[in-house]
Write a protein that binds this DNA or RNA. Structure first.
Lengths: 208, 208
DNA sequence: CCATGCAGTTAACAACTGTTCTCTGGAATT
DNA sequence: AATTCCAGAGAACAGTTGTTAACTGCATGG
């Protein structure tokens, strides 16, 4: 089934990935709309024209980066939300998971936070799509919870969006605190945890 | 007291404002880190070198734009939060106020949403400062509310940040829906209202 | 009224950008 | 073994960028 692709295509994907990696690094200090194609190829050590073999433009590369940053995140989201125990433990676990993810892929998180409202329309669109998918998935998991009895679909979806946005805000806060002293990072953890907790309280008493 | 400034300084402030206006317009389709100084002066119809009479760099101009976009917003925030009636009416009013503001100053809102996590550090910093100020002001207003009895300062501040972030998310949603049919905008209004309502419910039952 | 200050102009600079066309070497196909 | 294909190189293009220096004209303060 799985065909080990030839030397040819392997090399191609290798430089393609090198372009993505270089771009992601360069994007830590600027935004996509100012990222030059030559800048990227120079960082990789490849001719400027080679860029066109992989992407039509830097915007196109940006869309690919969205896929790389968010595409593999869906299973993680699902399992996080659906973790059974109802206590505050679940919230603590979720916040920790976000913190770990930011530590593991800071550049990806920065890219998403930056380009979500950035100056490149196709990239904004791609991010929006992924976040909508996230929200729908979260909603599906929430619907399974006994607590969701009596909730309308609309309300479940609005709660899901609230969670997704809160997740992104928290990730962004962890990102800013990455090089800060541990006490600062713990403060972020505490605030995020309590905000999620407050939302959960609101959720519990929504049907009054 | 108020000294009507001479013809000289008046002209200067006029071109300075023209530069800010032109930049804001150009920033609707790109981000600050890709905004060129020549681009701005060309749009105003002034020599590139004239730029330096007003700003050290485009980043500097960006910081000035933050001031313009958020500086005058503090009184509005305070009065909105402190509007007395406790019912859901206050939330509806707040959401409407956000919608109106987005309609009146879409470019400002877009700029803030875009550059909050954008590629220019001093601008990010300036926005962060203003948002922290907002949060502190909201907290002060919340503290006056009888509902805040028994709340710690930390919890009040975390709630205030939650409100401020939610305000920005809502503004951004209204922005995306600006050219959409009215039904779409009303959907945004409904979702935002319910999210705020859910947070309020959580707030009411926080001390259980 | 005259001298100073200063907002804005003009010209020039080296460096950089995206895109085109042509070419090449080696893997892939037959 | 001969042929096709194609990722990447190389060179050249017209335009753009930020920054410098020396200037001009006019409002301002003495």
């Amino acid at each position: 089934m799985s065909h080990t692709l030839g030397v040819r295509q392997a090399q191609k994907q290798k430089t393609r990935q090198a372009l993505l990696d270089a771009a992601l690094r360069l994007l830590e200090e600027q935004s996509l709309s100012s990222l030059g194609l030559r800048e990227v190829t120079r960082a990789v050590g490849v001719a400027p024209t080679a860029f066109y073999r992989h992407f039509r433009s830097t915007a196109d590369l940006g869309v690919a980066l969205v896929e790389e940053a968010l595409g593999s995140l869906h299973p993680m989201i699902r399992t996080t939300v659906s973790t059974a125990d109802d206590s505050g433990e679940r919230i603590v676990r979720a916040v920790e998971l976000i913190a770990r993810h930011v530590e593991a892929y800071p550049a990806h998180v920065r890219f998403i936070a930056r380009e979500r409202h950035g100056g490149v329309q196709p990239v904004r669109e791609a991010i929006r799509e992924q976040l909508v998918r996230f929200a729908r998935e979260v909603k599906d998991e929430l619907a399974k919870d006994p607590q969701a009895q009596g909730w309308s679909d609309d309300d479940l979806l609005m709660l899901a969006h609230l969670y997704v946005d809160q997740m992104l805000i928290t990730a962004s806060l962890f990102l800013e605190a990455l090089d800060a002293p541990r006490e600062e990072r713990e403060r972020v953890t505490q605030v995020a945890t309590r905000q999620l907790r407050l939302i959960s309280v609101g959720r519990r008493h929504w049907l009054d």
